[in-house]
């Protein structure tokens, strides 16, 4: 698994890249491997507001479904519309082409509950499978 430096990570395996008052959100390589055989992703619409630690969408494999939890709060400004039709992007490029949503932060992001790359890698090791 990989976990690029510079991103922040949630314990529920979402990543977030923050630039100014904007954030881009996706799920990690670890999560993609854990879920395996992805078949469907349900993402919010532009304009929808999301709440930190609350579900903003769902991702399904054949016999499993998981909520996607928002690592930050804000309003959705863009959605990766390619993704639902090209789920292999998540396998090929989870941190780049497999991004899910862009968010306009409504307040300064509360990053206290999020992990850096090293801490996240250590967290995954404890969850190992």
């Amino acid at each position: 698994m990989s976990a690029p430096e510079g991103l922040k990570y949630s314990k529920t395996h979402e990543w977030v890249a923050i630039t100014g008052d904007k954030a881009r959100v996706g799920i990690t390589d670890f999560a993609v491997q854990l879920l395996s055989d992805l078949v469907y992703v349900d993402l919010p619409k532009v304009g929808q507001s999301i709440t930190q630690s609350q579900p903003f969408g769902e991702i399904e494999s054949v016999k499993h479904v998981s909520d996607l939890y928002a690592p930050v709060a804000g309003t959705v400004t863009a959605v990766n519309t390619e993704l639902p039709n090209q789920l292999e992007l998540l396998n090929q490029s989870p941190f780049e082409k497999g991004w899910m949503i862009e968010v306009q932060l409504t307040q300064p992001a509360d990053l206290s509950g999020l992990l850096d790359a090293d801490a996240y890698t250590a967290h995954c090791a404890t969850e190992g499978h």
């Binding site: 078949v39 399904e60 494999s61 054949v62 016999k63 499993h64 479904v65």
Partner: peptide, 12 residues
């Protein structure tokens, strides 16, 4: 599309 069903999604 079994992920819709009770044996997988349970209360949802």
């Amino acid at each position: 599309l079994q992920a819709r069903e009770q044996h997988i999604r349970r209360d949802k």
